[in-house]
């Protein structure tokens, strides 16, 4: 199998109160669709990251359910309105139960 998934996020380190910031995330993952056949003609079993969650100071702010049509090394961007300083927690859940995560801090001025 491929190497462990590596998450990467791009979040501004600071924002003005009330500013809407873009959050860009990327994680390395084959996102095996379950529709692909190997060289011997057998279907390769599905193994994708099926859930992405973003929280800020412990509260869920954004969630995504992904299906096999999401491309390999999934990129996901979304927005967040900066109201207070704190920390983001990003979590990706694999079909096999593995959970990958990363954090990012935001200072609101």
């Amino acid at each position: 199998m491929t190497a462990a998934s590596m998450p990467r996020v791009r979040v501004p380190t600071s924002a003005k109160r009330g500013e809407v910031i873009e959050i860009r995330t990327l994680i390395t993952h084959a996102m095996e669709s379950g529709f692909r056949k190997d060289d011997a003609g057998r279907l390769v079993p599905r193994k994708i990251l099926s859930k992405f969650t973003a929280s800020f100071n412990g509260a869920v702010i954004f969630e995504a359910d992904w299906h096999p049509a999401v491309a390999a090394n999934p990129q996901q961007s979304f927005y967040f309105k900066a109201r207070e300083s704190g920390e983001f927690q990003f979590t990706w859940t694999d079909d096999d139960g593995s959970v990958y995560g990363t954090k990012a801090k935001l200072a609101v001025t």
Partner: peptide, 28 residues
């Protein structure tokens, strides 16, 4: 996507904390 093996690509749940309901992704 109406021409893929599975019709659903992704589903999102937003909260007012998002400030803006917008996403970007790459699909097959």
């Amino acid at each position: 996507a109406d021409g893929n093996p599975l019709p659903v690509v992704a589903s999102y749940r937003f909260t007012p904390a998002c400030g803006r309901a917008a996403i970007a992704i790459r699909m097959r």
